[in-house]
Amino acid sequence: MENQFEFIAIEGVIGAGKTSLAKLLTERHNARLVLEQFKDNPFLPKFYEDRERYAFPTQMSFLASRFKQQQDMLSKDLFRQLTISDYIFEKDRIFARLNLEDDELALYDSIFEIMTGISAKPDLVIYLQSSVDRLMENIRQRDRNYERNISPSYLRELSEAYNHFFYHYNKSPLMIINTSEIDFISNEKHLDYIEEQIFEQPIRNNTHIHIIPDQL
């Protein structure tokens, strides 16, 4: 299977399956895997308990961590031509706009604008879109302690912010996959179809893949 990319980024709301898909595609293509280091953020559990109080330190910790990873990605891997990541740097601002107060957002933006200009640019962005019910179910199944306080209303708010962001996204070719009714983790046919659309079809802007489970 011929590869036309050097860097693919997979995005989606919490629980959409972006990390799982990144890992599966990495295994199939011997790629370099770059995962968001959310476990290293000491403020994240506190954020889900008190969103207003801990939004700013949580956001700044993520910004610093993500930028460090972006710099590392700019260096070539001699043994792997393809890099697959489970986030894009620009998405950091989705959470910032959603959670920060005006003065905090102004300070954040002054730093973010410098960093985003020298971050790695994906050859393709894959946005995994999903219903809030499916997101909640996925979150319940993986049962991370600090995610137990995530509410459907917060996920709905976040989903709307993501949809708005990717509706206007034009920095890289974008592929949108609705994952509400599919299971690429357990169903290999679903994964095969996604892989085929990514690697065997010509690169295009704003490609929307709608997978019908009964037809696969």
Rank of each mutant, 00 (worst) to 15 (best):
E2M: 12
I14W: 04
G15P: 14
A16P: 14
K23M: 13
T26D: 07
T26R: 07
T26E: 05
E27Q: 10
R28N: 09
N30I: 03
A31C: 02
R32T: 14
L33G: 06
V34M: 08
V34R: 01
L35V: 12
Q37I: 04
F38L: 10
K39C: 02
K39Y: 09
N41Q: 08
P42Y: 10
P45Y: 07
E49F: 06
R53Q: 11
Y54A: 08
T58G: 09
T58W: 01
T58I: 05
Q59K: 10
S61D: 04
L63M: 11
L63D: 05
L63S: 04
S65K: 12
F67A: 11
F67Q: 03
Q71R: 14
S75C: 12
D77S: 15
R80Q: 13
R80S: 08
Q81H: 13
L82D: 04
D86Y: 07
Y87M: 01
I88K: 00
R93D: 10
R93E: 11
R93H: 13
F95D: 10
A96K: 13
D102P: 14
D103I: 14
E104V: 07
L105Y: 15
A106E: 15
Y108Q: 13
S110F: 11
E113H: 13
T116S: 14
T116I: 12
I118C: 08
S119Y: 03
S119W: 03
A120L: 03
V125H: 06
Y127N: 00
Q129I: 01
L135Y: 08
N138V: 02
R140S: 15
Q141P: 03
Q141I: 09
R142C: 03
E147P: 03
N149C: 07
I150Q: 00
S151F: 01
P152Q: 04
R156E: 12
R156Y: 00
E160N: 15
A161T: 02
N163K: 12
N163T: 03
H164V: 09
Y167D: 05
N170F: 03
K171I: 06
P173V: 03
P173T: 06
L174C: 07
L174Q: 07
S180H: 01
S180V: 08
I185H: 03
S186C: 06
H190I: 14
L191K: 09
L191Q: 12
L191A: 09
D192F: 14
E196G: 10
I198R: 03
E200V: 05
R204T: 11
I212L: 09
P213C: 04
